[in-house]
């Protein structure tokens, strides 16, 4: 058994580490590359000279973004939907998870409610009927179209209720002895001990709202109402040049605004990277609590 010998093991560890480093590099490369592009001159970017470090360093693209009203408007819409939608969803998660975490003895129709919510995760009306509902409620071009349809995230309810179930029943009984009702118990007994799960679900909902683009595309007619990701989608992905022939491309590349696009993509990634350390801290543990236990 050659591979079991110390030398074989050393070799394995070396190769294994090298492969892992390579994989991490592959995961970081696109982000570093886009950052480098955004800080390079248009000439260098257009000529394909930029890899991992800016060429002819300049803040030009960022200066352009600062003057670009559309970018800021959409950024504002996203902040609004994150704040409004995040709060609303978290409240709905708590309102649903608390009663559902109770034993059947305390809430007889518990499983009826549970299936009522669960069923929506395995069957849906599909794109057109959902669109029609939002439209017939007069929500087109309103921030509520981005907030209400996703206001009750069933997956987060599951995570939260599994966490609530681990809270000892004695805590609740003591609260009731002191004359507290359910809402009061939820607020002053459950919430203080649920920080990890609250943080996990809060961050998850936040990211979901930050990354959503499709609802903005179908529910917003006016470009001024686009959230950030929808705006990025409309300027970058839709004006896709990949499929032009090389000669056509050369012309367009000459007036390329590659660096400006790169800057806008990079700025849109920054908030996710900013909250990433918190995600690391809460998410992995909180996620497992809810999912693996099942």
């Amino acid at each position: 058994m050659v591979e079991e010998a110390p030398l074989g093991r050393k070799l394995f560890v070396a190769v294994n580490s090298a492969v892992l480093i390579l994989l991490s590099f592959a995961c970081l490369f696109p982000i570093v590359h886009i950052a480098a592009l955004s800080m390079s001159s248009q000439a260098a970017a257009g000529a394909g000279l930029v890899t991992l470090w800016p060429r002819d360093f300049t803040w030009m693209s960022y200066r352009y973004i600062l003057e670009n009203a559309a970018f800021f408007t959409s950024f504002g819409v996203t902040l609004e939907r994150v704040a409004l939608g995040g709060t609303l969803s978290l409240v709905m998660v708590l309102l649903a998870a608390y009663p559902l975490s109770k034993d059947v003895r305390k809430l007889r129709s518990r499983s009826v409610y549970a299936w009522f919510f669960m069923f929506t995760t395995i069957f849906g009306g599909g794109l057109i009927p959902s669109f029609m509902v939002v439209k017939s409620l007069g929500l087109m071009d309103s921030i509520w179209a981005l907030v209400l349809p996703t206001a009750v995230p069933v997956f987060n309810i599951l995570l939260m209720l599994n966490f609530f179930r681990q809270i000892p029943e004695e805590l609740e009984e003591a609260a009731f002895m002191d004359g507290a009702g359910h809402l009061r118990t939820l607020w002053s007994v459950y919430l203080p001990v649920s920080t990890p799960s609250l943080a996990t679900n809060g961050l998850l909902i936040l990211i979901l709202h930050w990354n959503s683009w499709f609802d903005g595309m179908i529910y917003m007619n006016d470009v001024d109402n686009y959230p950030l990701q929808t705006y990025i989608q409309s300027i970058i992905v839709s004006s896709d040049l990949t499929n032009l022939r090389p000669d056509e491309l050369k012309e367009i590349n000459a007036i390329s605004d590659k660096t400006v696009k790169a800057a806008q993509i990079f700025v849109s990634m920054l908030p996710i990277m900013a909250i990433y350390p918190f995600l690391q801290k809460y998410f992995i543990g909180g996620m497992l609590l809810g999912s693996v236990k099942g």
């Binding site: 409240v91 709905m92 309102l95 649903a96 608390y98 009663p99 559902l100 109770k102 305390k106 809430l107 409610y113 009522f116 919510f117 929506t120 069957f123 849906g124 009306g125 599909g126 057109i128 009927p129 959902s130 029609m132 509902v133 939002v134 409620l137 209400l148 349809p149 206001a151 009750v152 309810i157 009702g181 359910h182 809402l183 939820l186």
Partner: peptide, 23 residues
């Protein structure tokens, strides 16, 4: 009280998830 707590999420799901199913 538990039913009342469930009411807001139930209404939202009814409109935005079951509504499209009817559609």
């Amino acid at each position: 009280p538990l039913h009342l707590m469930l009411l807001p999420p139930v209404i939202l799901v009814l409109v935005f998830s079951y509504g499209p199913m009817a559609g």
